[in-house]
Amino acid sequence: MKNFQTIGKWFACIGFVLTIQTLSAQTFPDRPIVLVVPNPPGGLVDTSARLLSEPLTRVIGQPVIVDNKPGASGNTAYQYVAKAKPDGYTLLISYSGYHVGNPALMDKLPWDPIKDFSPIALLTVSTNVIAVHPSLPVNNLKEFIAYAKANPGKLNYASQGNGSVSHIGTEMFKQSTGVDMVHVPYKGSGPAIQDVLAGQVQVFISTPPSVMQHVQSGKLKGLAVTGKNRHPGMPNVPTTAEAGLPSFQLESWVALYAPAGTPAPIIATLTDAVKKSLALPEIKERADVAGVELRYLTPGATDALVKKELPYWSKAIKSAHITLD
């Protein structure tokens, strides 16, 4: 009899929890939503968050706040969201360099890229730009590669931090071309671009939001974009294939995630709101100006993308002997 009473109480508890979750999902959202960004202001990740926050506020009917939490190669933000209450009010703006790069870079990662997060949508993608300080006596990619080979170890390149896409991508560029450059890591695109503009480091392979305006103004030389097509904001900058290096391509993406365990109705509400937000014409215009490509994917398609890229980036990182040290 006691066993039946215990089982009855257990089912009653489950029913109570499910009822609370259902009521919560039905009233969601009834307060501000926070987008946690693993990078400082500036660059692709922060730009993507701010592109989304204003239209999402209008579509969903509650304030959407951007909260930058840089540090520990993205782990500060990822761990914060992984441990947050799964109620849809604390979300992660995830960066491909962290989401699929960190699992291969760290032996004891404090979060799991699949188990700890529920995908909501892919938001943006971006090619990268090979940019150099104008003091370098080069005018195209072939000249730059030749100059770097003639001056091994004398050029410094900036990255957004150890293990970032700009770090991994530049190491892959070095492997592809045989050049030798010294890595100078920064805490995000903002600090990195300042030293590149000052000539303290000479090379930066980064996303268009970090370098496009400086290439347009002539403060940096854009040698190539690492995608299949030229970038509309830099129509005179050739692709790597056009510049003579077809084997090197590099693309970054940004996605929106909730903590694992977030109720499916809340995920569905957020996914629908994101899709509507990214479809607004003025957001496309703002994205073009910022140098970001909007690319919505469903939760399932986003999950499939991550599962496909995890082994690919792991192989690339290990082949290039990239570490966080």
Rank of each mutant, 00 (worst) to 15 (best):
V100A: 15
P41Q: 07
P86F: 09
N68R: 10
A72L: 13
I130T: 09
S96H: 13
T47E: 15
V129T: 14
L122S: 12
P41T: 02
I114H: 06
L123K: 02
P70W: 03
P134C: 10
A82Q: 11
P41G: 06
D87E: 11
I120G: 01
E143W: 04
W111S: 03
V138K: 07
D87P: 06
K149E: 02
V132W: 06
T76K: 14
D87G: 11
A148C: 03
Y157P: 00
S118Q: 15
Y157G: 00
V125T: 14
L91E: 05
D112H: 15
L109W: 11
A77H: 12
P41C: 05
D116N: 15
V64N: 01
Y89V: 01
N128P: 03
L92C: 08
A158V: 09
L141F: 11
I65K: 13
Y78D: 03
P152T: 04
S94A: 15
Y80P: 03
N128K: 14
E54M: 10
V66L: 01
L56T: 00
H133T: 08
L123H: 02
T47H: 05
P63H: 02
D46E: 08
Q160S: 15
L56I: 00
Y98C: 09
P103D: 08
I145L: 02
N139W: 04
P70K: 07
P86A: 13
A150K: 06
L122V: 01
L105V: 10
I60E: 01
I93A: 04
T127R: 13
V125F: 07
L56C: 00
I145W: 00
T127N: 09
L52Q: 01
H99N: 08
R50F: 00
R58M: 07
N139E: 11
D46P: 00
Q62L: 01
T90M: 12
P41Y: 00
G97I: 14
L136V: 09
Y89R: 12
A49M: 07
V59P: 05
T47P: 02
H99Y: 09
L123W: 02
T127D: 12
S48W: 03
